[in-house]
Write a protein that binds this DNA or RNA. Structure first.
Length: 580
RNA sequence: CGGGAUGUGGCUCAGUCUGGUAGAGCGCCUGGUUCGGGACCAGGAGACCGGAGGUUCAAAUCCUCUCAUCCCGACCA
């Protein structure tokens, strides 16, 4: 492709509304333009990149035995009412009416549609297992779209849905997708990690997220350096050593602690470590008030709490409710003397602890010398806190570290949730009616582009892994007055095209600096520069965008020399040219 | 949905406090000189200052309403 005739307008300055590097670079390099909040146009370069990513994912899905379909983006409300999600999905589901005043929505996901499709056609266990996938534009009316392609309202996603006759089969479908995802992300040139994820209220099943490691990630993951344990912080467990138990302490007493609302303030005021302060949080779980106790230096993990309580709806109690239940301003709630039916649960670390400080359920007062076993009526102890750096790995008891990640894939064993609500059944070998066991598997195709850039860039621009770069080679011609150069560049372009290499040929009448900067910005993995001086010596300059290393390739026998250089560039990315 | 901020040529911004009829850099067009890491000179095009209403002799500037975008938070198959 001749750049002079292409459409890839670049910008010298960062766009004002971009915050993170991938967003800035995608706009500057002319890959995308925002149309409105969370909705982007893919320009030629961006589209090529998107297609590259999609093609690799498609190949790996096909290899894993999934079959491609294309499901409608516009979906009737009836299907969503069957599963109850029409009411529970919330505002993220963009709803509208057609001319006949019927309700519709734009598909944020396609469980209803595939299940509907399959229940009409699959009747026998002989037709199973079945795995259908699509690569499609989804729409979720996010409250706060942000970060360019990272969190859009309109985005491209690959979603697959498996249907199995029995649990063993469903597990096997799950792990087959898990493996396919690993292969796909490797081929995409990403540094990633599969982590255990919360399976939510669907229950009983399991789930993994595929995270691209990057400091700007929206998720935090806990990883073990020694073994393969890795989990989303929402889900992360740790090895717990029960304490030896506290010494007996003096009787409970109430002390005035005026104006001390936070744990830090209370600890400082009373001169005790934060770990000896009990943090009491009041939650509303499905309409019931629950008081949750954790050590003052810990954070409640709401996912763990929700799962422990078996609640579908969990949120921190509003200030008015806190005042009603504790009889005090926010900041002074404690385990003793809460009013009404309040369930009292505590983090396991507090079990057996004595001589603690806690809120007194009176404004401006706390209690000290609290012995939970002696003074309070804790219903249950459980792991309710969020993992922190240095907690021990639940598998091998090594220190864990916390890192940031971008979720680019999620595999999920759904079980019977949709097949039951939508009556998707088949006849088993015994002629018995059974519900299909489902799994769903998503990959954020457009988000992968942003993730790849977050992971691979420098001050000059993007560094694309060769497998997803819009073009593999950027060919810069530096003509000057030398009429021989354009001709040589044209010949080089033909040679490379003949080898099946995609080349973006900068044939513009621009100064060299402009060309170098644009090609760096685009992030094409291989740069070739042909100019008068090199041509006179019979060489082209080649640069590896990732490392910045330059070498010269002879024009005589160019194909061979290029092939070697190319293989080396791919290898630098951990990619095998022949396999991709 | 709460809190904060911003809307001025294609892009990045100044001007707003203290009203007097719009400016810079980049980009674009023409000509010339340049030509291996974002050139220089000369000339030029391009903005009803997000929108509506109001105050005033006079509004980008002050007031009211409204729309849009971004940031923080809550939320998140």
């Amino acid at each position: 492709m001749r750049l002079s005739r292409y459409y890839a307008p670049t910008l010298k300055e960062d766009p004002a509304d971009a915050e993170i590097v991938s967003h800035k670079l995608l706009v500057r390099a002319g890959f995308i333009r925002q149309l409105t909040s969370g909705i982007y146009t893919f320009m030629p370069m961006g589209l090529r990149c998107l297609n590259k990513v999609a093609a690799i994912i498609k190949e790996e899905m096909d290899r894993a035995g999934a079959i491609q379909v294309h499901l409608p983006m516009v979906q009737p409300a009836e299907l969503w009412k069957e599963t109850g999600r029409w009411n529970i999905y919330g505002k993220e589901l963009l709803r509208f009416k057609d001319r006949k005043d019927s309700d519709y929505c734009l598909g944020p996901t396609h469980e209803e549609v595939v299940t509907h499709l399959v229940r009409g056609e699959v009747r026998s266990y002989r037709q199973l297992p079945l795995n259908l996938y699509q690569i499609q534009t989804k729409f979720r009316d996010e409250m706060r779209p942000r970060f360019g392609l990272m969190r859009c309202r309109e985005f491209v996603m690959k979603d697959a849905y498996s249907f199995d006759a029995d649990d063993t089969g469903a597990d096997s479908s799950y792990w087959s997708m898990y493996e396919a995802y690993g292969r796909a992300f490797s081929r995409l040139g990403l540094k990633f990690k599969a982590v255990e994820a919360d399976s939510g209220p669907i229950g009983g099943s399991f789930s993994h997220e595929f995270m691209v490691l990057a400091a700007t990630g929206e998720d935090t993951i806990a990883t073990c350096a020694a073994c393969d344990y890795a989990a989303n912080l929402e889900k992360a467990q740790f090895h717990f050593e029960p304490g030896v138990g506290g010494e007996p302490c003096p009787p409970l007493e109430t002390v005035a602690t005026p104006g001390t609302h936070t744990v830090a303030e209370v600890a400082a005021f009373l001169g005790v470590p934060a770990a000896r302060v009990v943090k009491t949080l009041l939650y509303e779980a499905d309409g019931h008030v629950v008081a949750v106790l954790v050590r003052g230096d810990r954070e409640v993990n709401e996912v763990k709490l929700k799962n422990f309580l078996g609640a579908t709806d969990l949120e921190l109690a509003a200030p008015e409710l806190v005042r009603l239940v504790s009889g005090a301003e926010v900041g002074f709630a404690g385990p003793l003397g809460l009013k009404g039916e309040v369930r009292l649960v505590a983090d396991q670390e507090l079990q057996g602890m004595t001589d603690l400080v806690a809120g007194a359920n009176q404004t401006d007062a706390h209690v000290r010398h609290l012995d939970l076993a002696r003074d309070a009526r804790v219903t249950q102890y459980a792991d309710l806190r969020t993992v922190v750096e240095g907690d021990l790995c639940p598998k091998c008891r090594t220190d864990m570290t916390l890192t940031r990640g971008i979720e680019v894939g999620h595999v999920f064993k759904l079980g019977l949730k949709y097949s039951k609500s939508m009556e998707a059944t088949f006849l088993d070998e015994a002629g018995q009616k059974q519900h299909l066991i489902m799994g769903c598997y998503g990959i954020g195709v457009s988000r992968i582009i942003a993730a790849a850039i977050e992971q691979n860039h420098d001050e000059h621009g993007i560094k694309f892994p060769p497998s997803i770069a819009p073009f593999e080679v950027g060919l810069i011609e530096l003509a000057g007055k030398d009429a021989a150069v354009p001709a040589a560049a044209a010949e080089l372009y033909e040679t490379l095209s003949g080898l099946g290499v995609e080349v973006l040929w900068d044939d513009r009448e621009e100064r060299p600096g402009v060309k170098f900067n644009d090609i760096d910005l685009f992030g094409l993995p291989i740069q070739l520069v042909i100019g008068g001086k090199g041509l006179a010596r019979g060489v082209v300059e080649a640069k590896d965008r990732r490392t910045g290393e330059k070498t010269e390739l002879p024009l005589a026998g160019f194909a061979g020399a290029f092939a070697a250089f190319r293989r080396q560039v791919w290898a630098g990315w951990g990619l095998d040219l022949e396999l991709v």
